[in-house]
């Protein structure tokens, strides 16, 4: 119970962003003429925000399943870099790690990166509950949107900014907690330069590849210098 309370507190910044974006997705899908059950199926099984929004366009144009596969591969390739940091951590977790890997979205990743679990709590359980709660928020959002079918009567536009604010907070926290600012600076440089070089829609994967390459080079160089 303590774990649930703690996990809920950690996921609060994601709650609003996921529910609201989920609502937007649900509305878009049912407005294409599909039954609400499909929006729920997307939320439960696909569970990938930016991919789902891209799929709306594809479904509208009745694109092929192979196009969808390519789109999924390109948009989600970034996840390859997320898992890297949790290989050792997840190895120690029982069967629940399969669910953790399945549900490692941008938002869950950032919460887990930022996690400082109190000693008296079961950390495996906390990690699992964080992942599960985020997934539930997304399902609730998509379902709500598909059921209400139109925008909320009260103005909640802009609440999705809470995810951006959360990412920014994590960056600032990491900056203050670490002596070595090199990774953050590399992230900034590769992010901004790839945004200039490539279209806004697909800069992300190039930015991740170049920053991982730079960091690897840096580590290799450091190691050689020490030897």
């Amino acid at each position: 119970m303590k774990e649930l309370k703690f996990a809920f507190k950690q996921t609060l910044p994601i709650l609003f962003s996921y529910v609201f974006m989920g609502i937007a997705f649900g509305i878009m899908l049912v407005q294409l003429g599909y039954h609400a059950i499909w929006a729920i199926a997307f939320a439960v099984f696909v569970y990938a925000g930016s991919l789902q929004f891209a799929l709306i366009g594809l479904i509208q144009a009745q694109g092929s399943i192979w196009q969808a596969a390519l789109m999924a591969l390109f948009i989600n390739a970034r996840h390859i870099f997320y898992g890297l940091s949790f290989i050792e951590r997840f190895r120690k977790i029982d069967w629940r790690r399969f669910y953790l890997i399945f549900s490692l979205t941008d938002e869950t990743y950032s919460v887990l990166c930022n996690l400082l679990c109190p000693k008296e709590l079961d950390e495996d359980k906390v990690i699992f509950l964080i992942s599960l709660l985020d997934h539930l928020y997304w399902i609730v959002g998509c379902t709500l949107g598909a059921i209400i079918k139109e925008a909320l009567p009260f103005g909640l536009e802009g609440i999705e900014f809470s995810a951006t604010a959360f990412f920014l907070v994590v960056v600032i926290k990491q900056w203050q907690e670490n002596q070595d600012h090199f990774p953050a600076i590399i992230g900034l440089i590769s992010g901004l330069s790839c945004l200039c070089l490539f279209k806004a829609d697909n800069f992300l994967i190039f930015a991740l590849i170049s920053c991982a390459a730079f960091l690897l080079l840096y580590e290799a160089f450091n190691k050689r210098r020490k030897e």
């Binding site: 950032s110 990166c113 990774p183 992230g187 590769s190 901004l192 690897l216």
Partner: peptide, 17 residues
Amino acid sequence: LAKALPRAIMVILVIYC
């Protein structure tokens, strides 16, 4: 790399947003 990446990725995610 696994330890350094999150700090770089979070900056990139802010830029992405």
